[in-house]
Design a binder for these strands. Structure first.
Length: 843
RNA sequence: GCGGGCGUGGCGGAAUGGCAGACGCGCCGGGUUUAGGUCCCGGUGGGGAAACUCGUGGAGGUUCAAAUCCUCUCGCCCGCACCA
């Protein structure tokens, strides 16, 4: 036992001891409540940084605390190891992605161990290990069997720098690649998609089943899924002579109630009909110009909202089903092929973009839904004819209002989800010219990547059988190691990999050379932890029944959509497959804030990194752990500063001295002392245990530490003020032990050293039960009341805690300062807030 | 434009509608020590000698009582965005 607090003498000793004792390995234990505490697994991009320290320190406190509270705690770790950075690093250092990846995993492993995190290392998963990714391939096959895999040609996002396609979720809102920030291009390519859209409604609905998630994350997901309620409307296409044909073009609209105000019709430049109806006509050249422009422009330029919309008339018309009116078809780049049907009914009086377009090209703007306070309403209220008058109308109005110029619907309420919207759709429905419809913004998940360092897609292209899955008994498709990315190679450069035979007909065939998006690997790792070493099945459902869902998930907000949405999708499919018995993987989610330096996120490329290693070398891991949790509430961004480290170091040193000195003292000369100082200290002990417990449960790690500091301060004053011989040694001993237990989740090494060496206990402090507390003992027998007159505190009084409200009221009214402030005035009201204050109202 | 969030001392941050600024950093003063960046003691929102008074981005409101609830407003951050 060292006399001074010396983390360097104790931390590695206990790390080795815990590992040897298997302290943190768990198995299912039906006798205890379970708790699954999970931090998002790291990407092995180098050594760990302060963001990792924060993330994993939070999780470690929750895990250790839960164990002490009597729960069976699963707290695993692993690595999200496939991905492009490994290839880039390999090219840079002229090596192999696996070399770089596994070296970084080693580095991070030793850093995690050096931090003293309580992981069950026996459950480690590494997504680039064959015994992990083989099950990823198995999942792909199962999804395929369920019709959730599709290979299709469509306009996809292509990152020219990463030389691969990207999912929609991986393109940032400024049109750049999430990883390298290059401007993403659109290319028409044949790719693999997972049909996440089939679960769009459920993914949206079940957000309501997640009260333990931050509203922000749920809002972002809801926004991303983007459900719009409306209708499909069929417009009849006219021929060159303007006569109706038997073909229809369908549009999606959220405002069928404005259908009478449709004065033109729009097609996206990519729409197949555009070329068909304009080819060889006098309109072709103007239309082609728009089409060419749209194809050339980057998605950023095209989506610039301040740009004036360009368009061209096609020479053709469609018939508006509600009034038989013929409206011209235009082409414009503000209509997107990806959303809805790629065709839009334009209602300039109800939509700003349509309005701007109508103004520019001199198209009519007939009002159909008018605000209740619009003077135009009186003038048009009785007009039942459809779309007769175009009145001066210098704004578009998208709100709720009254329908005018809308035939039999005139006078109804119009607006989103309005009576008019329903009535018009029902009218269309009866005539077979429209129907209620729901549209989602969410697109299917593009998962194929033209890169080497990923999980090979288990598919085979057979010239006669088409695309066929690799049979289950031939899995895994092993990722070959001899691909040289420094020469720009991918699997497509290795015939020995792709030359194969068709599993159906046995003929020569070509193996798929694309790999899967890394997000497929991270969409199910939390399930594999439940049964990580199973080589006969992806997992045993009994085990996921016991451990899942994750009770507390902790990670960065950057995964609000990507990883968290994909994982929810996978879980729902697993449920439908009967592999799991729940629909949501993560019951509670804590999104921790970023660790910044000088206002910017720490990153190697910026060169503003504070290495945890340097802090550990000076102060030890315990001080770092406690300090980063003390700095700010976990969900807030945190500006790193070394300034307060000394404060945490001093606190731990003080605690060390207080506890070890107390432990050394002969026990029990005085016990159950009832002098004021002893009573105060006893109360503090119970109050603080209660507060620390509640604070950790609410993730207020900073205030929990503050409370421990308060207890130490009170205990410190006690030793200073009460002479030796009069001190209650039993109480002090209890304070010392309690403080050690409270500190244990934060500073596991220091607490363990004290527990075993100073107190001479044989078991680990981390297996001890959490201290009990008694709210009754936390209460004082006297309380101080603040006495207010007209809302201002004028005096204070100390009174017996059992005093009745009447007694308190009377006592307050006779205080000299209160008499001074109430003299000559009428006391109108006296309120007593028990244990807190008295409020006197005079007038 | 739509959605979410945040504004409290010199700093990080505390406050189930009930005494604003807990706890810590920093700073000021004092003590122990050969010395110390150790340890210990005291002080620390503004104004005022004090009684008091002003203070949680701003303006209103509800309430005996508002950092907290409501309305408007200003500033900042984040997500989505020609989504029909």
């Amino acid at each position: 036992m060292t006399r001074q607090y010396d983390p360097h003498a104790i931390e590695e000793k206990w790390q080795a001891n815990w590992e040897a004792a298997g302290l943190y390995s768990v198995t299912e234990d039906a006798s205890k409540p379970k708790k699954y505490v999970l931090e998002m697994f790291p990407y092995p991009s180098g050594d760990i940084h302060m963001g990792h320290v924060r993330n994993y320190s939070i999780g470690d406190v929750v895990a250790r605390f839960s164990t002490m509270r009597g729960m069976s705690v699963l707290h695993p770790i692993g690595w999200d190891a496939f991905g492009l950075p490994a290839e880039n690093a390999a090219i840079k250092s002229n090596s192999h992605p696996a070399t770089w990846t596994y070296a970084n995993i080693e580095k991070q492993t030793s850093s995690f161990k050096r931090m003293g995190f309580s992981y069950d290392w026996s459950r480690k998963v590494v997504t680039s290990d064959e015994d992990y990714y083989r099950w990823g391939q198995w999942i792909f096959i199962k999804f395929w069997e369920r019709g959730l895999v599709e290979r299709k040609s469509s306009p996809v996002n292509w990152c020219p720098s990463c030389e691969t396609v990207l999912a929609n979720e991986q393109v940032l809102s400024d049109g750049t690649c999430w990883r390298c920030k290059s401007v993403v291009e659109k290319r028409e390519l044949e790719q693999y998609f997972l049909k996440i859209t089939e679960y769009a409604q459920e993914l949206l609905d079940d957000l309501d089943e997640l009260p333990g998630w931050p509203d922000r994350v749920k809002a972002m997901q809801a926004n991303w899924i983007g459900r719009s309620e409306g209708a499909e409307v069929d417009f009849t296409l006219c021929d060159e002579a303007g006569e109706p044909t038997d073909r229809t073009i369908t549009v999606f609209t959220t405002r069928p109630d404005t259908l009478f105000g449709c004065s033109f019709f729009l097609l996206a430049p990519e729409h197949a009909l555009v070329a068909e109806i304009t080819r060889g006509t006098e309109y072709a050249s103007a239309v082609d110009e728009i089409v060419a422009l749209a194809a050339k422009e980057s998605s950023i330029d095209r989506s610039a909202t301040d740009k004036i919309k360009r368009g061209a008339f096609t020479g053709r018309f469609v018939v508006n089903p509600v009034n038989g009116e013929k409206v011209p078809i235009w082409v414009s780049d503000y209509v997107l092929m990806e959303y809805g049907t790629g065709a839009v009914m334009a209602v300039p009086s109800g939509d700003q973009r349509d309005f701007d377009f109508a103004r520019k090209y001199g198209l009519p703007i007939p009002p159909v839904v008018i605000a209740d306070d619009d003077p135009l309403l009186a003038e048009l209220a009785g007009v039942r004819e459809s779309v007769l008058r175009e009145v001066p109308w210098d704004v578009s109005f998208a709100g709720d209002g009254v329908m005018v110029q809308s035939g039999e619907f005139t006078g109804m309420r119009g607006g989103k989800a309005s009576e008019g919207m329903k009535a018009v759709t029902e009218w269309l429905l009866e005539r077979g010219q429209g129907r209620f419809s729901i549209n989602f913004r969410l697109r299917d998940w593009l998962i194929s990547r033209q890169r080497y360092w990923g999980n090979p897609i288990p598919a085979i292209h057979c010239p006669s059988c088409g695309l066929v899955p690799v049979p289950e008994d031939q899995l895994p498709v092993v990722l070959p190691t001899d691909v040289d990315v420094t020469k720009g190679e991918t699997l497509a450069d290795h015939p020995e990999f792709y030359e194969t035979t068709c599993p159906v007909c046995g003929g020569a065939a070509r193996r798929e050379t694309d790999t899967m998006d890394t997000f497929t690997c991270s969409s199910w790792y939390y399930l594999r932890y439940c049964d990580a070493r199973n080589d006969a099945a992806i997992w045993d459902t009994d085990k996921t029944d016991y451990w899942m869902p994750v009770d507390q998930y902790i990670g960065g907000i950057e995964h609000a959509i990507l990883h968290l949405l994909y994982s929810r999708f996978f879980t729902k499919v697993f449920r439908d497959m009967g592999l799991v018995n729940f629909a949501e993987p993560f019951t509670n989610l804590l999104t921790q804030g970023m660790v910044k330096l000088d206002g910017a996120t720490m990153s190697k490329s910026r060169g503003n990194v504070v290495a945890p290693e340097a802090i550990i070398a000076k102060y030890g891991a315990d001080t770092l752990r406690a300090y980063i949790l003390f700095m700010a509430p976990p969900d807030k961004d945190l500006e790193w500063s070394n300034e307060g480290l000394d404060g945490m170091w001093r606190f731990l040193g003080r605690a060390w001295r207080y506890i070890t000195e107390t432990a050394d003292e002969a026990a029990g000369a005085v016990a159950g002392a009832s002098d004021p100082a002893s009573k105060l200290l006893r109360r503090e002990r119970h109050r603080v245990v209660g507060k620390v417990t509640e604070d950790i449960e609410r993730f207020q790690f900073n205030t929990a530490l503050s409370a421990m500091m308060e207890l130490l301060n009170t205990a410190h004053d006690y030793r200073r003020d009460v002479p030796v011989g009069q001190r209650d040694n039993a109480l002090e001993r209890d304070i010392a032990e309690t403080l050690t237990l409270l500190l244990a989740p934060y500073v596991p090494h220091m607490a363990e050293e004290i527990w075993r060496e100073a107190f001479g206990r044989s078991g680990s402090v981390h297996s001890e039960p959490w201290p009990e507390w008694d709210p009754a003992q936390a209460a004082s027998d006297e309380v101080e009341y603040a006495v207010q007159v007209n809302g201002k505190v004028r005096d204070r009084m100390t009174i017996d805690v059992s005093a009745s409200e009447d007694v308190v009221r009377e006592a307050a009214l006779v205080l000299p300062k209160i008499i001074e402030h109430t003299e000559g005035k009428t006391v109108r009201k006296v309120l007593v807030v028990p244990g807190k204050l008295v409020s006197i109202v005079v007038g």
